[in-house]
Design a protein around this nucleic acid. Structure first.
Lengths: 250, 250
DNA sequence: ATTGCTTCTCACGTTACGTCATGATTTATA
DNA sequence: TATAAATCATGACGTAACGTGAGAAGCAAT
């Protein structure tokens, strides 16, 4: 027979935890004295070991309580389910470390990187798969792959340019500069891509717009610092004006 | 200018979340009407995107608040720290999946496995490294390795025998059976090991006991269903009685 | 009897919101 | 313009698994 303090020392759990388990009915002490003090028996040890094993496997106390009552039956099947559960959590963490392992070297080799850029970088990495999947609804697989390769080739540089591009666009929009200057901006931004790729992109974009009329972008998938108005305006200008112009350049 | 509902839709976060962020001062709406309604501006979008990026990386809202105030400075260093933090969490999950991936095939190939056995199995897997480390303080590395190999060779069988061994010991202790029967029990249990290994084990054990007098087992490192009394009694019987007997057998 | 240690029962704090309940305000429709 | 419908507001409680006191009571030893 152990007092709660002795039992806690023996098992390595805190007194508070034992009281809590008593309270929720997960582990009732073998005896309670007239004065209300808890006394634990060796069988409580076995029970607590079970509980701690389940906790190690990541089960919630509620699930543990169920399993200790229903006993054995579902327990073994439950293990498979639990592995999948843990696996899912692990994949999430894997994704984060993957992104961080991509970003950290990039900012370490550069002298100074604006936090805005880093954030954009992380965002695009985090949503990469989702973005690809979305774009492949409209564009060819080859084009999408190539677009992302351009970004990967010099991530920091790409997002830095993208950032400044957006800043300048905002400026242009405020000043209602509609043609020559904006055209230059867009052109300059697209110098990041090889000529041929840019052509492909605009060709496919024009086809899509002809067919679908308008593309609905799910919110937050392509985060930018532009407002809705500014974006609409950009697409308008880029497509009607620049697309034609690009083709005329040929 | 968006109402809170529009803003929520645009960003994909819930209204409740926006109100909460307002409450803790993480994201204040651009304007609040005389009637108390929140209106969000595009700059709030940028801020929220930052917040969501940090959340993706696993930062707490409190840390995020700090970083948004102190800006840039520690942010990049913080990334490295955060990667390590995530890494630690990942290692924990890795350990669990490792254990589960060991256990699940074992119980799948056996027709019926008592849950007690499975639990013992998981416990020993979970504490394996710790146990080895502890044992190597007293026993030679080679011996410890070999002992664990015996267990690994047929985990389910081993823990099943161990379990029944402990049950019978309890029985024997209750009945105060002190010699012949217990000797047989211990002998039978140790048939799990090859002869030579058993000899090594008892030889080293005797040496340790001669030198150290008594081994202090940290609580919970070697979980068993035996009470303290029973364990002491077992060691007593096994060492004084059986050890001598084993050597006499030679 | 007093001191000192252990234990008791509230009861609030933690994280990041979800989920009502109830009431006010804005927007749409008749 | 009156009213219905949608949206928004503020509490306030619930979540999971305890940590952390506060204040009182029990227990062992001096």
């Amino acid at each position: 027979m152990y007092s709660i303090g002795q039992f806690a020392k023996k098992t390595g759990v805190t007194i508070r935890t034992l009281r809590y388990y008593d309270q929720i009915g997960l582990l009732k002490p073998a005896q309670i004295s007239a004065a209300g003090r808890r006394y634990y028996h060796d069988e409580n040890m076995v029970q607590l070991q079970k509980i701690m094993t389940f906790r190690f496997l990541g089960y919630s106390l509620e699930k543990i309580q169920e399993m200790l009552q229903n006993d054995e039956k579902e327990f073994t099947q439950s293990l498979v389910k639990q592995r999948n559960e843990i696996q899912k959590q692990k994949e999430h963490l894997d994704r984060i470390t993957e992104v961080l392992d991509n970003v950290i070297p990039l900012i370490e080799e550069q002298a100074t990187v604006e936090p805005e850029i880093v954030i954009a970088l992380i965002q695009s990495l985090a949503k990469e798969e989702e973005q690809k999947h979305f774009l492949e609804q409209y564009f060819s697989k080859g084009l999408v792959e190539k677009l992302f390769e351009v970004e990967k080739y010099d991530m920091v540089g790409f997002h830095r340019k993208e950032f400044h591009f957006q800043l300048q666009l905002k400026q242009a929009y405020r000043n209602k500069v509609v043609n020559e200057e904006v055209k230059e901006l867009v052109k300059e931004f697209f110098t990041l891509m090889p000529e041929g790729l840019m052509q492909n992109f605009f060709d496919e974009l024009r086809d899509v717009l002809d067919e679908e009329g308008d593309i609905e972008f799910p919110d937050g998938l392509f985060p930018s610092i532009l407002t809705q108005e500014e974006e609409d305006w950009l697409i308008d200008v880029a497509v009607t004006y620049n697309l034609v112009d690009m083709k005329a350049d040929e």
